[in-house]
């Protein structure tokens, strides 16, 4: 390790003091690696220089948040998960007059656009609102545009088909100079805003909350707090969807939920 435990503690404290972002309850093993990686990536020679850059340069802090959080995402990531959404969850949501969805930790938006495409195909998009939030302003700026690298589209169309998509995927975007721009009709139903799962509160009641591959970077206590936040933001019989290797099994809340088959989707019972 390049940065010592003590230095890491100083950094976490300073970031909290200067910017109000609290990373103290992140999974330390992974968080340390991220900080080390950034330190090396940006060619810092000493910890004090690194720390002072973070403290004095808000633009650099923004970069730090972007780099320290893991932002990798895909459209229709884990296609079988989307298949279950499509075949088992959307038909239930369809009976509601209005559908509210929260993508917590949406990163650059691929997950939100995937959901919007499925809603559109189920003829539900017009009565849905997709709230997409993330701690990192940098990824939200990208997400809002609905523009993804064209080189990824082959993979995304394969995922789309594997998730049960029947349309020609190319009808959803316009290719231009190496990028694929997704339709305004999808973007119209989305609301993007910055929201920190560590410190911000519930802002609405939802029929389904997706928080996939976000809480793996939290320690157990913070996971529990985030789960409580989701629990307080879910309507009765609402759904909570996590990443393929995430579970609420270790949480006190699990008794209030029942899991759908083997998928990482839970239904709130009461």
């Amino acid at each position: 390790m390049i940065i010592s435990d003590q230095e890491l503690e100083v950094l976490i404290n300073d970031v909290y003091e200067y910017y109000g972002f609290d990373f103290s309850s992140y999974s330390m093993a992974s968080f340390k690696r991220r900080v080390d990686r950034l330190f090396q990536l940006d060619g810092f020679k000493s910890f004090p220089v690194f720390l002072s850059k973070i403290r004095t340069d808000p633009e650099y802090f923004k970069r730090m948040v972007e780099e320290i959080t893991v932002n990798v995402t895909e459209m229709f990531r884990d296609p079988l998960f989307y298949k279950v959404l499509r075949t088992e969850i959307l038909p239930v949501l369809a009976t509601k007059p209005f559908i509210r969805i929260w993508h917590a930790g949406c990163s650059t938006g691929e997950e939100v656009f995937s959901m919007a495409i499925m809603l559109k195909e189920a003829n539900l998009l017009h009565k849905s609102l997709l709230y997409a939030t993330d701690i990192s302003p940098a990824v939200l700026e990208l997400a809002k545009k609905g523009v993804f690298p064209l080189r990824m589209i082959k993979q995304y169309s394969e995922n789309y088909i594997a998730s049960g998509g029947k349309e020609d995927f190319s009808r959803y975007y316009i290719a231009n100079y190496g990028s694929a721009k997704f339709g305004e009709d999808l973007i119209e139903r989305m609301v993007f805003s910055q929201h920190n799962l560590v410190s911000d509160r519930s802002f609405n009641e939802f029929d389904i909350i997706l928080c996939r591959n976000v809480m793996i970077y939290f320690d157990k206590d913070l996971q529990e707090r985030a789960l409580e936040l989701f629990d307080g933001s879910l309507s009765k019989l609402g759904y909570l969807a996590l990443g393929t290797k995430e579970t609420i099994k270790f949480s006190a809340l699990q008794t209030k939920y029942s899991q759908l088959n083997k998928e990482k989707i839970w239904k709130k019972l009461r």
């Binding site: 999974s27 330390m28 093993a29 992974s30 690696r33 990798v72 591959n213 793996i216 970077y217």
Partner: peptide
């Protein structure tokens, strides 16, 4: 990636 935390807990990381 598979990582180890204090208190004998395993963590995963998709970086």
């Amino acid at each position: 990636h598979l990582l180890f935390e204090k208190d004998d807990i395993l963590s995963l990381d998709a970086s």
